[in-house]
């Protein structure tokens, strides 16, 4: 993770070096239209009902405005999720668990996230059918969780978690967090992702991970958002909820490619790679999450 950051800094510095001379201009490029495809964004969190968002891909230079964004979502798809025993047909409706406020869900679900189970998703829309499979890996308890102030800062710092990988398989971890507060301006209603990483770096060992606030939904899409004054930190006195999610390797690989792709836009140092997800016949990913959830009040150790 840090290595990636360091690499980026390396290339950024290199860019800085060449931009001493470099010049840039807008050009017109004639791009062909991509084949229409269904994009699946599906989640099964342990203890929760599955929820799925369906959308469509668009041509690269199609305008992005609120109308086109809404039009990119699919409202009339048919979505089923099965845990091998039960199958639920999900319908498009408002859904509290989704950041968007809507998703394909089942009101009285028979299929609910459970450690060790494998889930199969089928979605049909625009005359196409796609499928995806994911497994929930049993969650892992933290060894400890604490808040530490950052050097040169007296009241801002990182939350640190320590956990020990069982060293039994190749898997990914996804750390999610949100700040909870009675003050609506400081309350973050949704868990957002801080990091995801593979256990290959510390298989069978303890990992310490420090993190700040997670990026909020669509920060890339919504520029000029008012910046949180505590951006980059948690403040002493904050209450933070943390989830250590266990995810299977194919879903981790998808997230990893996704992160790599969004950070390597046009860079000559990166290869232009398509993100390959676990959705057969379409785009996107379907992820089962084992969940260990904790709450910490940031106080001096």
């Amino acid at each position: 993770m840090k290595m990636k950051i360091a690499k980026h800094i390396f290339w950024l510095t290199f860019f800085g070096l060449v931009f001493f001379y470099a010049c840039e201009k807008e050009i017109t490029v004639d791009l062909p239209k991509p084949d229409p495809k269904i994009v699946v964004e599906g989640y099964v969190f342990e203890g929760e009902r599955p929820y799925v968002i369906l959308s469509r891909n668009t041509g690269y230079f199609e305008p992005i405005d609120s109308a086109s964004l809404i039009n990119s979502f699919i409202f009339d798809g048919v979505v089923t999720v099965s845990d091998g025993i039960n199958t639920d047909t999900l319908t498009f409706q408002s859904a509290a668990e989704s950041v968007l406020g809507f998703a394909y869900v089942k009101t009285n679900p028979t299929v609910v996230g459970q450690a060790g189970k494998t889930y199969t998703l089928t979605a049909t829309a625009d005359g196409q059918t796609v499928t995806a499979v994911t497994t929930i890996i049993p969650p892992l308890a933290l060894d400890s969780i604490l808040w530490k102030p950052q050097v040169n800062e007296d009241s801002l710092g990182f939350v640190w978690i320590y956990f020990t990988d069982p060293g039994v398989d190749l898997r990914g971890y996804r750390i999610m967090s949100r700040r909870v507060s009675a003050n609506p301006e400081r309350n973050q209603p949704y868990f957002r992702t801080n990091f995801y990483f593979e256990n290959s770096l510390f298989s069978g060992q303890q990992a310490p991970v420090g993190f700040d606030q997670a990026s909020q939904y669509g920060e890339d899409l919504l520029a000029n958002q008012p910046e949180d004054p505590d951006d980059g930190y948690f403040r002493v006195g904050d209450t933070v909820e943390v989830r250590l999610c266990t995810i299977d390797k194919p879903y981790y690989d998808f997230l990893n490619m996704l992160g790599n792709s969004t950070s390597s836009n046009g860079s000559p140092f990166a290869s232009p790679n398509n993100v390959i997800g676990n959705v057969i016949g379409g785009l996107g990913g379907f992820g089962g999450h084992g969940v260990a959830q904790y709450r910490i009040v940031c106080t001096f150790p």
């Binding site: 490029v29 791009l31 062909p32 239209k33 991509p34 495809k37 994009v39 964004e41 959308s55 469509r56 891909n57 668009t58 041509g59 690269y60 964004l69 990119s72 950041v99 992702t193 939904y217 669509g218 920060e219 890339d220 899409l221 996704l258 232009p272 785009l283 996107g284 990913g285």
Partner: peptide, 10 residues
């Protein structure tokens, strides 16, 4: 070059 795009988790 990229010819298309889609939105995933923002």
């Amino acid at each position: 070059l990229q010819t298309g795009r889609y939105i995933y988790d923002g």
